[in-house]
């Protein structure tokens, strides 16, 4: 397990920034930045990542607080859903042509 970009010690820690582009959408990862604390991280994020009207809401999270899945375990981690096509509507072909289904 690791944190994105959180490998070195800097005077100001690294934060990950998530921006909601407009109401009704999820917050999406926009990038990261440095800030001494959460309050300034939020403000820096506003200044850096919404200069062109890109957002209506912002989340900031210390990079070190993010836990990622282990890339070396990728196969084991993400194997299970493969081959289970019956979870998708496209699997069910017999109903083709029938309306409102």
């Amino acid at each position: 397990m690791s944190s994105p970009g959180g490998t070195e010690h800097d005077t100001w820690p690294l934060w990950e920034v998530f921006v909601r582009a407009s109401r009704g959408l999820s917050h999406l990862h926009a990038g990261s930045l440095h800030a001494p604390d959460a309050e300034l991280a939020l403000r820096n994020a506003r200044d850096l990542y919404t200069r062109r009207n890109e957002g209506v809401s912002i989340w900031v999270v210390p990079s070190s607080e993010i836990t990622t899945s282990d890339p070396d375990e990728k196969d084991a981690f993400f194997e299970s859903p493969k081959g289970k096509r019956y979870r998708h509507a496209s699997y069910y072909t017999e109903a083709e042509g029938v309306k409102h289904l």
Partner: peptide, 12 residues
């Protein structure tokens, strides 16, 4: 890709 992850607009 992140093309769709943020919208850019001029704003009124």
């Amino acid at each position: 890709m992140s093309e769709t992850s943020f919208q850019v607009s001029i704003g009124e």
